[in-house]
Amino acid sequence: MIPPLIVETALNKGIGVIAITDHNASANIEAVQKAARGTELVVLPGMELQTSEEVHVLCLFDELDQIRAFQQMVDASSPALPNNIEFFGEQFVVDDTGDFLRREERLLLTSSGLTIRRAWEQVTDLGGLLIPAHVNRKANGLIQTLGFVPEDTPIEILEISIHITPQAAVAAYPQIQGYPLIQNGDAHFLEDILGLNHLTLESVTVAEVRSAILGLEGRSHAIQS
């Protein structure tokens, strides 16, 4: 997806905040942030990390410095396999106009060496927010992969895929009852950009997003049905 088109699509849908969360990668975040300059859209840096247990977790941050530090930890723990374009497709890094800068040579599709517990510690230490992604999904969902939310990891929020309603998710997976849920488009294409989460925030920070999803201090969150 080309950065200016991501920004344009989000703005056209009335979206105020997006997060760029590529799989084990963060090299394209800055381009989207630059493309959003001068607009109302806030672009948070993030990552969809694949943990060593093959669980996908969203990692959200406020600043590029935080995601860069986290990326170093992810890279240091990950196998250095080259990408095979024929099988796995291109891994382009682009500038804010969408022009080619370079190819990411390392295969991003693998699991990192970070366990979900370690990832939670690293993200939290850096001031970020970790939310297990599409927990109901057969592939790489927390519930399918690990059965239930691990007791040793203080996870507060879960994300469900768009293929299920929150009510149906809780009915199908009673082990997620009581967790505040968010639901994202997991947009891989422009048409997947949906803007499903309505958040009441004082300012756009990851801490505010967390407070809103948890319903703390007058902040609130609702999923558009």
Binding site: E53, T115, I116, T145, L146, G147, F148, P150, E151, D152
Partner: peptide
């Protein structure tokens, strides 16, 4: 799978 959840299962 070596995650601690294997113990509970």
């Amino acid at each position: 799978q070596a995650h601690v959840n294997i113990v509970a299962v």
